[in-house]
Simulated assay, not measured.
Amino acid sequence: MSCPDCFRGAALSGEPKGTISDVNGAYLASRPSSSRAVVLLSDIFGLDLPNPKLQADFFSEQLGCDVWVPNMFNGNAPVRPEQMRMPERAGQRFSLWDWIKIIWVALPTLPAIYRNRASFIDKLKSTKKYDKIGAVGYCFGGATAIKFGATGLFDTIVVCHPAKFSMDELKAIKVPSSWVCAEDDMIFGHDFRLKAEAAMAGRKDGVAYEFRDYKGTTHGFAARPNTDYPEVKEAYEDTLQQTVEWFKKTLTSSS
């Protein structure tokens, strides 16, 4: 359920503008009279990093809707920000010792990954009467978005370099999906990515989808980019626009 790249990355600069809500302690970037919403499903750093909050602020402003970031780990994220490693360009490999350190840190807290997710969505739907809700998920959150894509809880999803999932879970998705794909991803590797797109293309139900690849990137770049690398900075900014355009087309448009 984890990989070395999940533990690499950088904190984005900036000051979040939203608030911690009374809905399961989720972060909320709100817009007045929003009838539609986006749920941002974070990676394993959760709300301990500013990144998902800053992304929520950006999406809320660009889309003119509420954006929620669930507190999926109840304040006990599997990895602390101080345990991050700065990312390298595509092609880096981790040693056996790196794997051992990651397992040692993450294993005791991995069960927390699955807490608070469905309960948050249920509470959100029962207390907020949105017309439509979309989800964008990163790493572990990406795998969660895939699972929820089969449930009808969301109307559209964006999946960014997801954690491990099965082909059956992909085939069960019944809402429009947009995929952000890293060049070098030890979980959602190139061969699996091609099979995933072929599976979507072979469906007969006409559910919309798209896959976009980003050169020079590794797993995690859309959540924790090291913007000191020009190609990573450009790719990260492009993923933000990909997400905005997808939601404009499938979530916030009047059609």
Rank of each mutant, 00 (worst) to 15 (best):
V69D: 04
K174V: 05
T144S: 00
Y229R: 06
D213S: 12
M167N: 10
F221P: 05
A135L: 01
D122L: 11
S166V: 07
D168P: 02
T144Q: 00
L47M: 11
N71C: 08
W68F: 10
K147F: 01
F211R: 05
A143G: 15
K53M: 13
L124R: 10
S35E: 13
N226T: 04
D184V: 00
F148V: 00
G75T: 13
R36N: 12
A172T: 07
L124A: 11
R117A: 01
K128Y: 13
D57H: 12
F58R: 08
P70K: 08
T227I: 14
A29P: 02
C3M: 09
C6Y: 11
W97H: 11
S178Y: 05
G46F: 00
A37C: 11
S30F: 09
D168I: 08
L170V: 14
D213G: 11
K171W: 08
P225T: 04
K164L: 15
G220Y: 06
L47Q: 04
C139K: 03
R89E: 15
A37G: 01
V38L: 04
A112G: 14
W179R: 10
I100T: 10
D43A: 03
G75M: 14
E169A: 12
D5Y: 14
R115T: 12
K249S: 03
C160E: 00
F45A: 08
N74A: 15
M84H: 06
V244P: 03
I133P: 00
I100F: 14
R80C: 08
D205L: 04
L153P: 01
L28D: 11
R224C: 06
M84S: 12
C160K: 00
I100L: 15
A29F: 06
D191W: 07
